[in-house]
C-alpha cells in the first residue's frame, strides 16, 4: 500500500496580493505556501503511514523552485517527492493540468491498495477541479470533500461533507479522495525530519519523462491542450466609502437608527 498525494504551491492570498497594471497577478512579490487543503491531504497520508507504515509519495506540478515545497513535505515525514516540471506544460488549464498530473501519477504507478489524495481546492484558482479530473483520467473512483477517512484493508470508508450534513461512502482501493480542512490538523516539520529531507529522493518528471504516456501529446498539454481560454482578467472596483459617523456613544447609535428608520431600512 502507498499513498500518493498531489500538492500545489500557491501564492499566499491571505497576505498582501499584488496585481500588475495589466490585471495579472504579480506572483514574484508574493510569498508562496503549500496549498492549505493539500496540507490536510499530506497529513491524512502521514497518519496512514503512522498507522500502517505505508509509503507516502508527494507529487507536484510547477516550476523548479517548487522542489523546496516538496522538501518541506519530506521534512514532515513523506518518503519521496516527484516534481513535474517543463516548459511544455506551461499555460495548462485545469483539464490539461489533470492530464499531466495523471500521467505523472501513472509513472509512479497506482496499484490495488493504493490511495491518491488531493486537497479539495487551491486558494489561487479555487476551482476544485483538478482532483476529480485526475480521478477520471486515471479511471479511479473518487470521493470529494473527505472529512474522515477510515481504511480497513482494501475497503475505505469516507465521511463526505455536504452543505447540510454528510454522506458515508464506501469505496475500494485504488481510489482518489479530496481532503478538506475538517479532516485533520496538519503537523509541523520536525527537526529530525528537516535533517533527513535533503537525503530523500526527489525525481523530476519533465516532458521527456512523460511523453510516452498515452495521456500526453502536443494536443493534450499546455495551451493547446486547454479547452478554456481567459478572455480577460480584471480587478473589481472598490465600492466607495460611505459616511463615517461622529463619535461612538448612544447619540451616535440613535443617529444611525434614525437614518435607517428614515430610509425605511428597518
Amino acid at each position: 500500500m502507498k499513498v500518493i498525494v498531489c500538492v500545489k504551491q500557491v501564492p499566499d492570498t491571505s497576505g498582501k496580493v499584488a496585481v500588475n497594471p495589466d490585471g495579472t497577478l504579480n506572483r514574484a512579490s508574493m510569498e508562496t505556501i503549500t496549498n492549505p487543503d493539500d496540507m490536510n491531504a499530506v497529513e491524512a497520508a502521514l497518519k496512514l503511514k503512522d498507522a500502517t507504515g505505508c509509503k507516502v509519495i508527494v507529487v507536484t506540478m510547477g516550476p523548479p523552485p517548487a522542489e523546496g515545497m516538496l522538501r518541506e513535505l519530506l521534512a514532515m515525514g513523506a518518503d519521496e517527492g516527484y516534481l513535474i516540471s517543463g516548459r511544455e506544460f506551461g499555460g495548462s488549464d485545469t483539464y490539461a493540468t489533470s492530464q499531466i498530473v495523471a500521467a505523472g501519477v501513472n509513472k509512479i504507478g497506482v496499484e490495488k491498495g493504493d490511495i491518491v489524495l488531493c486537497g479539495r481546492q487551491a486558494i489561487d484558482g479555487d476551482t476544485a477541479q483538478v482532483g476529480p479530473q485526475i480521478a477520471e483520467k486515471l479511471h479511479l473512483p473518487q470521493v470529494t470533500y473527505a472529512a474522515d477517512i477510515q481504511v480497513d484493508g482494501q475497503d475505505i470508508t469516507v465521511k463526505r461533507m455536504l452543505e447540510d450534513g454528510y454522506m458515508t461512502i464506501k469505496v475500494k482501493t485504488p481510489c482518489l479522495l479530496t481532503c478538506i480542512k475538517e479532516l485533520n490538523e496538519p503537523r509541523y516539520m520536525s527537526v529530525g525530519g528537516v535533517f533527513e529531507a535533503y537525503s530523500k529522493p526527489v525525481t523530476v518528471l519533465d516532458y521527456e519523462a512523460l511523453k510516452d504516456d498515452p495521456l500526453i501529446d502536443a494536443t493534450t498539454i499546455g495551451l493547446k491542450g486547454s479547452p478554456t481560454n481567459i478572455l480577460v482578467s480584471f480587478t473589481p472596483p472598490q465600492k466607495g466609502a460611505g459616511m463615517m459617523l461622529e463619535g461612538n456613544d448612544m447619540a451616535t447609535c440613535e443617529k444611525l437608527a434614525g437614518i435607517l428608520a428614515g430610509k425605511h431600512i428597518i
Binding site: R71, Y188, M189, S190, V194, A197
Partner: peptide, 15 residues
C-alpha cells in the same frame, strides 16, 4: 544551510 533555512521556517511557524 538549506536545512537551517527550513528549520527557521519550521520554528517560526511553531512559535
Amino acid at each position: 544551510s538549506k536545512e537551517q533555512q527550513m528549520l527557521r521556517k519550521m520554528y517560526r511557524e511553531f512559535a
